[in-house]
Amino acid sequence: MLTDLSRRSALKATGLVAGASILPALPALAAPDTVAVAMDAIKKLTGGKEPVKGKIKLNLPQIAENGNTVPLGVTVDSPMTVDSHVEEITVFVTKNPLPIAIAFLFTPESGKAEASTHIRLAGTQDVIAVAKMSDGTFCIDTKNCKVTIGGCGG
């Protein structure tokens, strides 16, 4: 029932967008949607504050052969003292079904604002890392990853 509904609405929407051919319009339809959701999620986290570039570094391969397990690492240049440390690093994915992949929570006892994991990428997309500092500012870094085989079932 649920799949029926979404397919119907998807078909209707493609009809509006492209009209003539359905197939080429489908990826174009899916793309702006999830990107907008991810951007909204970032805004929600930062509370409208503009995150600055630099300080944070997102490590991601430029090309991932298998989207099921893509190594990801984040590092923030921070002294990690009680007065000045990173509280949270959130990793956003722009073309997966859900906007947030993982959020790392840090304390001064973490020693370094550094963490790694493996994530799934449904397709070639931008991955965005946003760090929340203890003074209420935010840092951002974006990396694009080309995925040859997607990793979200499908």
């Binding site: 973490s110 493996h118 994530i119």
Partner: peptide, 27 residues
């Protein structure tokens, strides 16, 4: 946690791969 006090955590979503691997630091 170290000696009962949490020093690192992660909120994990379905976009994390099977057999979740996490690497982090501790002072």
């Amino acid at each position: 946690s170290f000696n009962g006090k949490q020093f690192f955590g992660a909120n994990i979503q379905p976009s994390v791969s099977a057999n979740p691997y996490i690497e982090f630091d501790a002072k």
